[in-house]
């Protein structure tokens, strides 16, 4: 089973995303200018500052050749995980509800956050339990979630005291109505190894994604 990881100009978390994927599947590097998804079984859109965050974070990236293919892949039911800037891109592409606004205090924040799993009825959280806390790093300046989203589409919330960016209803991660596209601001790919991640909780999401991609 093969999971693609997209790289745009300005992406910086693609290497960690490929390392995280390698723990559950074969990682495949995908390039923004190439519409060929190389037959992957799932796609990770990683974090960074695609196209310099010009205009709005994710606004330019959504029109790249690879995203036309990712949108078609997602609409056909393929699993897609957007992390941080990837989340912003999937929102701009209309694959996920809502938008990400500047953090309420306008600062770039880098810290470990606790996330509370809201539902296990998505591929990505199928390896978790409802109410379970995941300790995962977050690092962003534009991560304040805003949008109209059905309660069952809220997958992760910041645990009490951890909503540093002002997100509406403590929302940290959402899925589309079909449940095959997920986005979150914190970085599960940075928390897949106890040596460097502070926890390996992020691995759960990749394991869940791989489990469904196989099916």
């Amino acid at each position: 089973m093969r999971l693609g990881v997209v790289t745009f100009p300005g992406t910086c978390d693609d290497v960690d995303a490929r390392l995280a994927v390698a723990k559950v599947a074969e990682p495949v590097a995908l390039w923004h200018g190439d519409a060929d998804l190389q037959g992957v079984d799932g796609v990770v859109v990683p974090g960074g500052f695609s196209y310099g965050d010009y205009l709005r974070a994710g606004a330019i990236a959504r029109f790249s050749p690879v995203m036309a293919s990712v949108i078609a892949f997602a609409n056909a039911g393929g699993p897609v995980l957007g992390i941080c800037n990837g989340f912003q891109i999937l929102c701009e592409a209309g694959l996920l509800p809502g938008a990400l606004l500047p953090n309420k205090d306008l600062r770039f924040v880098c810290r470990q956050v606790d996330l509370e799993v809201q539902t296990t009825a998505t591929p990505f959280t199928s390896t978790c339990e409802v109410g379970q806390h995941l300790s995962i790093p977050a690092k962003h300046q534009t991560g304040c979630f805003f949008g109209h989203v059905a309660p069952e589409q809220v997958v992760l919330r910041y645990a009490e005291g951890h909503n540093f960016n002002g997100s509406q209803d403590d929302i940290a991660g959402v899925v589309n109505a079909q449940g095959n596209v997920m986005g979150l601001m914190p970085h599960p790919e940075h928390a897949v190894d106890l040596l460097t991640g502070g926890s390996a909780d992020g691995l759960r999401l990749f394991e869940g994604m791989a489990r469904v991609a196989v099916a």
């Binding site: 606004l101 500047p102 953090n103 306008l106 304040c144 002002g166």
Partner: peptide
């Protein structure tokens, strides 16, 4: 009605 932290800061 949308949070505008830049406006608030100014």
């Amino acid at each position: 009605g949308i949070l505008d932290p830049q406006g608030v800061a100014v």
